[in-house]
């Protein structure tokens, strides 16, 4: 049984939440309406800005034609593969740094430089080395792997030394410490890294597609720009937004599952 005072409190909180979501939605509607009307009344030039109704038409055209979803699917797949590669590679390197203080000391300045280097500058190199298809993965991984290494490694460092001392007192080998403490204790850090990586890898994939590709949303955007089709550019950008929402949703589902399985308090 809850007291009437508590009921009131809950009602007020619920109303606040509702107001926030309603306002959110109205902002979007207002923005779209203003855009449409401004283009309609020629305050702005629809050649340059397009307009929502036109976007909807071209979305349907592109979708029915079948190629829009194909391009979205390609970019999505590239992003997923990029994330998986940079998570595995980044974690492996972070483990190496933990395993060997020598390696971590030697390589530390290189990581700092690589982190600061704008990875886009490597585009032509990837293109020449990997070809137009695989250079996209190269770009995606280059952008996210360094951050992965840094984040996972700092996660390892947060694990208390005495937890490892406890393992040591039972005579644990370094591999046992890794398997029984470091990796399971780092699950929250893996999730946080994954969340950052969704954004970064998507940047890498689109950058890679800008530089060289025959398919994908980045390709559509560049192509649309070159033939001056703002509709195509904007529809592709919206699909990109949708893609990032979906990927982020997947990561959140994964996080919820991991939290349940590993019992970490959030």
């Amino acid at each position: 049984m809850s007291s009437p005072l508590y009921d009131d409190y809950l009602r007020i909180q619920k109303r606040r939440l509702r107001i926030v979501s309603l306002t959110r939605l109205s902002v979007l509607i207002l923005f779209l309406a203003l855009w449409e009307l401004a283009a309609e009344w020629r305050w702005i030039d629809p050649m340059l800005t397009s307009k929502p109704s036109q976007l909807w038409t071209s979305f349907r055209e592109l979708a029915f034609e079948g190629s829009l979803f194909k391009h979205t699917w390609i970019s999505g797949l590239e992003t997923l593969v990029g994330i998986v590669i940079s998570m595995l590679l980044g974690t492996a390197i972070a483990v190496l740094f933990w395993w060997s203080t020598f390696a971590s000391k030697v390589l530390e300045p290189y990581i700092v430089v690589l982190n600061a280097l704008p990875k886009v500058a490597l585009g032509p190199i990837f293109y020449i080395w990997l070809g137009d298809r695989y250079s996209i993965y190269g770009m995606a991984v280059a952008i996210s792997v360094i951050v992965t290494i840094i984040m996972v490694e700092s996660g390892f460092r947060e694990i208390s030394k005495t937890k490892l001392k406890l393992m040591g007192s039972f005579g644990a080998t370094r591999f046992q410490m890794l398997r029984m403490v470091l990796l399971p204790a780092s699950v929250p850090h893996f999730i946080a890294t994954l969340k950052v990586n969704v954004g970064l890898t998507l940047v890498g994939v689109v950058m890679g597609e800008f530089l060289s590709s025959k398919a994908g949303l980045g390709y559509l955007i560049i192509y649309g720009g070159q033939v001056f089709q703002m509709n195509l550019v904007m529809v592709s950008i919206m699909m990109l937004a949708l893609l990032s929402v979906i990927l982020y949703g997947i990561v959140n589902l994964l996080a919820r599952y991991a939290r349940k399985k590993y019992n970490h308090e959030s």
Binding site: L166, F170, G171
Partner: peptide, 29 residues
């Protein structure tokens, strides 16, 4: 294996339930 260590903090692993925490030493050895 003749020696057992008990530290200031319990350092139970939060990703294991109580029973599986108890088996940590046995697992390592």
């Amino acid at each position: 294996p003749k020696v057992g260590y008990m530290l200031q903090h319990d350092h139970l692993f939060e990703w294991r339930d109580v029973l599986n925490n108890l088996l940590v030493g046995a697992e390592i050895r």
